[in-house]
Every structure is written in C-alpha cells, then in structure tokens.
Computed example of a mutant assay.
Amino acid sequence: MALRWSWAAPRIALVPALAITLVGFAGSIGWTIFQSFTQSRRFPEYAIDPARWLSQYERLFANDTWWTALQNLLVLAIGSALAIVFGFILAALVEREKFGEGVFRTILLYPLAVSLIVTGLVWRWIFNPSLGVEAFLRANGFPDASFNWLAAPETAMYGIILASIWHGLGFYMALMLAGLKSINTEIWSAARLDGVGVMRLYVEIIVPMMKFTFLTCAILLSLGVVKAYDIVVAMTNGGPGTSTWTPAYFAINAYSTRSNIGFASAAAVIMLLITLAIFLPLVVITAWQARRSEAVRG
C-alpha cells in the first residue's frame, strides 16, 4: 500500500523538533550526568576515574553551603505556596464581583508581565532603607520603623519569598478563576437554596471539585521554585553571606566562579532528582484522579 502523504507529512514536520529535543534537552541532561562523574574543571573531561567517580557528590554533600541552599529551597517552597492560597482567595473574590472582574483581573495579572529580574530589582528598592518603605515610614512619624529585611541573614529569604508571591499571585489567581468558572452554576444555586454558608461551600464542595487546578498549580510552583535563580541574583546576589543561596544559584556559582564543571554538574543532577521527586508524584496523582473521575462518570 502506498504511503499516504496526509499521514506522513505531519510526522516529517515533527522530525526537526524531535531532533532538537533529543540533542538539546535529553542530550544536555545526559552530558551533565556524565560530567558529574568526572574531574572536569574549567574544561570538560571525558575520562571517569573508577576510584573517584562519586567524588563530586561527596564534595557536594560535605559542603555546608549546599545544605544551606537545600534548606532555603524548602523555605522558598513553603513560602511560595502561599501564592496558591492567596490566588484562590482572590479568584473567589473576583469571581463574585461581576462588574469589576475585568479590571481586577488585569491589575492582578500585571506583575506577571514583569520579568523576575525586574521584580527583584523593584523589591530591592522597596527594602532599601534609604529609598523604600522604611524611609517612607520614618518620614511620616515612625522614626523607629525598620523594613530592611535583605540586610539580615535571618530575614533575607523572607524578602525573596514576598517578592516571589507578588510576582506569581496573578498567575495562580487566573488559573483558580478558570477553575471556578468551570463549576456548574447549579451547584451554587443549590447551595444557596439549602442554606449552606459561604465558607462551608468553598471548603467542602468547591475546593474538592478544583483538585486538578490545585495540582496543576502545585506542579508549576514546584518547577519554578527548584530553578529559582534570577530573583535571588537581582535582590541579594546570594547574600548576606550565603544565606539566600538556592541550588540553582549554587550550581551556576560553581561553574562561573569556581570554574568547576564536574562540581556544578553534580549539583545540577541533584536538582534534577529533586524536580523528579516532586514532579512525578504530582503527575501520577493527577493522572490517577483523572482516570478515577472518568470511571465515575462512565
């Protein structure tokens, strides 16, 4: 049977994209994993010493700064999760405000149009004691006001979290708003007729119905947190000291400052494993929930 062009054409069109994906994505991952087992420094090496093939990982987990970066990753993940919570609250408020929905949605989505570098710089000015909130408060009768979080190791990470929440809040609000609009209006009407309170309605009915939306937000948030780098550079450049280092910042610093490809590759591989440990369970749960919902409807 002759090969039909209508069948072959779309597959041929996908070949360049598939080749770029294999070489640029899968290939770079494989190359990074391989380099993590070598003693590569400024330039890559392609010989693995059997007696020292895990030396980069041993150095990595013996490094106190790496453990600080992992702790900051956990703090950033927990803090940034508030963007999902606040995004849902804002979506619920905007969804109930029929007349001003478009205006509020536009205003709250505006931070998403700003890059993380610009976001970091803006919040750095806000935390600046000479230019930002602290200067404003002191000029208006609060001489003891202090809002210089980025200067103290104990609070610098919270400043980054605050900026991250501000940047991503509108995005998660938009996702939640789409989820709320997908809910059948009869459910709202039935709840009102039954006298169900607003809080109980959201907690017991609406939130469970939006589990796929919450899982999607969690997946996107986890990917953004693991690769957090640009906002750290813009706000603190890792300081004070190493108090705001993240795994991504650590890996890039190991390559750019220490000129150690093997060490940076080992950090990148651990980042990949962290991403898989977070991402894969969420994807599996999402797929399982989808099949379960289809089985119930069927």
Rank of each mutant, 00 (worst) to 15 (best):
P16H: 10
I20R: 06
T21C: 10
L22G: 13
V23T: 07
G24L: 08
G27V: 13
S28P: 01
S40V: 13
E45H: 07
E45L: 09
Y46P: 07
A47T: 11
R52K: 05
L60K: 03
A69S: 12
N72C: 01
A77Q: 11
A77S: 10
A83M: 03
I84C: 03
F86Y: 13
L90Q: 03
L93P: 04
E101L: 12
G102I: 13
R105D: 09
L109F: 14
S115K: 09
I117M: 12
V118N: 08
T119P: 03
N128R: 09
A135N: 15
L137C: 10
R138D: 08
D144A: 11
N148E: 12
A151D: 02
T155R: 01
G159K: 00
I160P: 00
L162M: 06
W166Q: 03
H167P: 00
G168E: 05
L169H: 01
Y172P: 01
Y172R: 04
A178I: 09
G179N: 07
L180R: 02
K181T: 15
N184T: 15
L193R: 06
L193I: 14
V196C: 07
V198S: 15
R200D: 15
Y202Q: 11
V207H: 06
P208K: 09
M209T: 13
M210D: 03
K211F: 08
I219G: 05
S222P: 08
A228I: 10
A234F: 08
N237I: 05
N237V: 07
W245L: 06
F250Y: 08
A254K: 00
Y255I: 12
S259G: 02
I261H: 06
A264Y: 03
A267E: 01
I270E: 05
I270K: 00
L276W: 10
L276T: 09
F279K: 11
L282D: 07
Q289C: 14
R292P: 03
S293K: 12
